[in-house]
């Protein structure tokens, strides 16, 4: 069983059994309450999943999947911090997955996307985060990894269909990780895809207070 956590858009938590069956799932599109809802969501999903495993209806937890963004930093960090904590608490590996991969898999499996397409999420400050894919299974192939583009005037290359979403499906995030594990594929580092340097103003020397 895999537990998947993503806070790159709203907050999404899901537990998926080894056979792909969704055991428990909670999500909200709210982009302002990650640190609040992560607690109850995790408690409900883990309680449901642990009960299924205890009853012999599912395998025990074997990994924690963390959506590494891109996404607004403050919220994104909450889910990654939580996933890292669950992994050390349960003694299972952390499996980092770019959040857009989950959306891409959902679009391909749902028969929505085919050929070349891109997944777009809000990056605030009039920018969007864009990842370009080629439809493939079991794992979508990344044609161009995540980048920022101005929201106004951004158009994908010809023939590339754009899908903008406001939520990341945690179940699909778990499915991507399971497919990577099954294929023996590697996972990226568990670092957030910030795509932007921190906001800082370099000191220019003390400002005069007298004229």
């Amino acid at each position: 069983m895999l537990l998947a956590i993503d806070t790159s858009a709203g907050t999404a938590v899901a537990a998926v059994a080894g056979n792909g069956r969704v055991l428990a799932e909670r999500s909200t599109a709210d982009t302002r309450r990650h640190a609040e809802v992560i607690g109850p969501f995790l408690a409900e999903v883990l309680a449901g999943a642990d009960a299924e495993a205890a009853g012999g209806n599912a395998d025990p937890l074997t990994g924690v999947v963390t959506g590494i963004g891109p996404g607004p930093f403050t919220g994104l960090r909450v889910g990654i911090a939580a996933a890292r904590a669950v992994a050390i608490a349960r003694g299972v590996p952390l499996l980092p997955v770019p959040s857009h991969d989950a959306v891409a898999l959902d679009l391909i499996e749902g028969g929505v996307a085919a050929g070349r397409f891109c997944v777009v999420t809000d990056a605030r400050r009039r920018e969007v985060a864009v990842t370009e894919y080629a439809a493939s299974l079991p794992v979508p192939s990344v044609v161009r990894s995540a980048r920022l583009e101005p929201r106004l005037g951004f158009a994908p290359d010809e023939g590339v269909v754009l899908y903008e979403v406001t939520e990341i499906p945690a179940t699909a995030l778990a499915h991507v990780a399971a497919a990577r594990l099954a294929a023996g594929a590697t996972f990226p580092d568990p670092q957030p895809l910030y795509l932007r340097a921190p906001d800082v103003t370099m000191p220019t020397g003390p400002k005069r207070v007298t004229s």
Binding site: T7, H34, A35, I38, G39, L42, A43, L46, F73, T74, R77, V78, G79, A81, A82, A83, R84, A85, V86, I88, A89, R90
Partner: peptide
Amino acid sequence: LAGALMVGVGAAKALAVALEKPF
């Protein structure tokens, strides 16, 4: 600092839940 606090809060809640310990 709000963003700094949230890292600790997210991790602490997850630890408590995963360990089934009070928070």
